[in-house]
Design a protein around this nucleic acid. Structure first.
Lengths: 142, 142
DNA sequence: GATACGATCTGTAGCAACTACAGAAGCAAG
DNA sequence: CTTGCTTCTGTAGTTGCTACAGATCGTATC
């Protein structure tokens, strides 16, 4: 823990280790403007402070929760301007939840289709397969 | 349906309409080698035949089922060489099914996390939010 | 102070799987 | 022959990173 109480700040490698975010990705976040430009040493290496560590941690968790970079950008802008309300954040979360539920449904439909296809298959050495037959059909709806 | 019985073949727009695959995407498929280079008119426009329509339809369905381009390429190569067996195709399908099931599980975990976060939220006009608090925590495990 | 060695630097290119132009040319109908 | 839609090529953009190359920084050891 000693390295994280260093008054000189955290080098990028420490940030990476502590949050699990890849070094290249941290620089990428800076480039796209969701992480601030940190202080630099005399030699030009990045030196982060504790607030920046918290911010990076926020981004990591938000990504894990499945928020897009643009959603995270919106969230962080509200935080930075200090003009968010709990209601706004809640509604973003609920919207996102709805999208996740949609994805789950779509994947369940896929699962069913794949299972149906696999079930029809003899799985043998025969050079013929109902799976391919299904996929090769030309629809008549066009 | 008359345009699809045209002896001169189908222009790219007809292929697109019939399969639902975007024109740009059809050209992209040609570029990456999963669609063949079709005949051309005297003026240079693409002219597809019915086999090519079936092939594009196969690609479309396979993408909808969630196969990656590389998986589709492998499938098509087996078909082109005529050396596939039903067992091979079945095992690709089952592998893919397992990946889909994994994704569903991961999304369910996400759903739970989002629901827990949303449930703790007052949703009010207050400039403070347990969702953000959760996301802003710096983990102590690093 | 010299040296070695890992950490970090910038800048660019690559990944998947498309999508979106620009600017020119084809093609069919009137 | 003009109008107007379709198609052409080639390139760049999208999302969210990741992977280099080649140079410099920073620190520990001698």
């Amino acid at each position: 823990m000693a390295e994280f109480t260093n008054a000189r700040g955290y080098p990028i490698g420490a940030m990476s280790k502590h949050t699990g975010v890849n070094i290249e990705t941290i620089r990428y976040y800076e480039r796209i403007g969701i992480m601030p430009k940190p202080d630099r040493t005399a030699g030009g290496n990045r030196q982060y402070n504790h607030d920046q560590l918290k911010r990076l941690s926020f981004i990591k968790r938000s990504r894990e929760i499945g928020f897009s970079i643009e959603e995270i950008r919106a969230l962080l802008e509200m935080v930075d301007r200090r003009d968010f309300t709990c209601g706004e954040v809640h509604s973003m979360t609920v919207n996102h939840l709805a999208a996740v539920k949609e994805k789950i449904l779509a994947l369940h439909r896929l699962e069913d289709a794949l299972e149906a296809m696999a079930a029809e298959c003899s799985r043998g050495d025969v050079p013929d397969c109902p799976i391919l037959d299904t996929l090769f059909e030309v629809s008549e709806t066009g």
